[in-house]
Design a protein around this nucleic acid. Structure first.
Lengths: 245, 245
DNA sequence: CGCAACATTGAACGGTATCAAGTATGGTGG
DNA sequence: CCACCATACTTGATACCGTTCAATGTTGCG
């Protein structure tokens, strides 16, 4: 499983534009504005909670997350980002209410806010594409809300596994039934809204039932049908560029 | 507390455009396209789960919700809409994964999908405004995710009350400490991811502690500071038009 | 009046949290 | 190469928050 950058730096946005309907003109404009991607170490912060982003960031390789930290030190992970995703382009200017950081060593292409604004004025299609990113992540968040509100811990974990493997495959960094699982049990617990201890027990149930195997960051889906069933997973919502006019 | 339509039908979009930065030209174009708002009865469905919307709907008066129904009959409420909100403009064309229905008797202005597309091509500012809607609702959903994942049932209820009263006030349909609470206990439980029984008990705790009073759909916030504290509520994220470039 | 929807209460059960160990695993410096 | 340490993972015991089931009270409405 390969989370490394693709071919050349001049195609750093390839994964992003691939799922948009942008024409060659817009692609070139974006590529020119982005320049060389920046390397971000595992755990390093890309955007602080409470600070305003100076640029639009697009993940070229690696995995990133957005999370809200609570007063008591706990946190809730709100989104995961795979290569090609725009990193929370939503609260573009105002103070961000979430922290965005790299879950694995990553590379990020950044376009200064002012440049993005100009690009969007000249190419409405670019605004459209960014809106699509916002919309797709909102759809993913809705699935998480259903999980968090109405599903057992095991269904939630199963769902997270399904979603991640599906998105990795769509991003071209995984094959059919094997992919990276870049979260520690503690981080997965923060995403699922459960405790680490319970996370561990639930994971062992999934293993014992023969649905998945997971060790040192490598995930294999063994019984896909059973896993999808346990998760009530329907990948329809992950269809990229979905729906927007 | 007044959830009824404002003045005249020719200003049905007033609440929506008020929080955008749209110029007079775009406002007129929208108003012309919208025509007369449609009345929707309490409980009536505006968009079926699984069907594709034929129009962009903007709520002129009343309260609406979006929800996902599960196989076992339970549901998770994902968003609430107050006057001026665009009703889930996200999955505009593809089959909607949520059901949108009126929580109270409402009126909805509708603009056919094709018209919206043309409007957006002519006026990028309109696309920008709709993107802003998507973004604001995504921000609200993130708050709900934190609630669902990491807060106690009481904090969740307190937060919902804070959010609703704040949004009603911003929409101009409530005063400082009194507003409608248009959800039954059963519906509120579906929004908070708890059972009806527990919802009832938690609400009584809030009442006993003297934080709120609530009966037959009328809510009064008695001890605002204590309520905000219990909810860890910070209204910053509800600032409309926030952040977008 | 009588029905239907909503709200309230009690008892028992269960999923999940918390606390408190203990066991890999990998990296670092001596 | 080994001792050491930090991080991640595993396991058990206990307590609690929230669920479920079941019943009863309340309100509004035709």
């Amino acid at each position: 499983v390969n989370l490394a950058p693709q071919s050349g730096a001049d195609h750093s946005l390839a994964a992003f534009v691939a799922r948009t309907s942008l024409g060659p003109e817009e692609r070139q404009a974006l590529d020119a504005a982005a320049g060389l991607p920046r390397a971000v170490a595992r755990g390093e912060c890309i955007l602080e909670q409470g600070s305003s982003p100076a640029a639009l960031s697009i993940l070229c390789s690696g995995v990133a997350l957005s999370a809200r930290s609570l007063a008591d030190g706990r946190q809730q992970i709100l989104s995961l980002f795979v290569p090609g995703d725009a990193l929370d382009c939503t609260p573009f200017v105002s103070p961000s209410r979430v922290r965005i950081s790299a879950l694995t060593a990553s590379t990020v292409a950044q376009i200064p806010t002012g440049t993005v604004k100009r690009l969007m004025q000249r190419h409405p299609a670019i605004m459209h594409a960014l809106w699509g990113e916002t919309a797709m992540h909102a759809a993913i968040q809705q699935e998480w809300m259903v999980s968090l509100g109405r599903q057992s811990a095991m269904a939630r974990l199963a769902h997270l596994i399904c979603e991640l493997s599906f998105r990795f495959r769509a991003a071209g960094v995984a094959d059919e039934d094997n992919c990276a699982f870049p979260l520690t049990q503690s981080e997965a617990a923060d995403a699922l809204g459960i405790s680490v201890v319970h996370m561990n027990r639930v994971l062992q149930q999934l293993r014992k039932k023969g649905l998945v195997s997971l060790s040192r960051g490598q995930l294999s889906i063994i019984d896909k049908d059973a896993l999808y069933l346990a998760a009530e997973f329907d990948p329809e919502y992950l269809r990229c560029g979905t729906g927007l006019i």
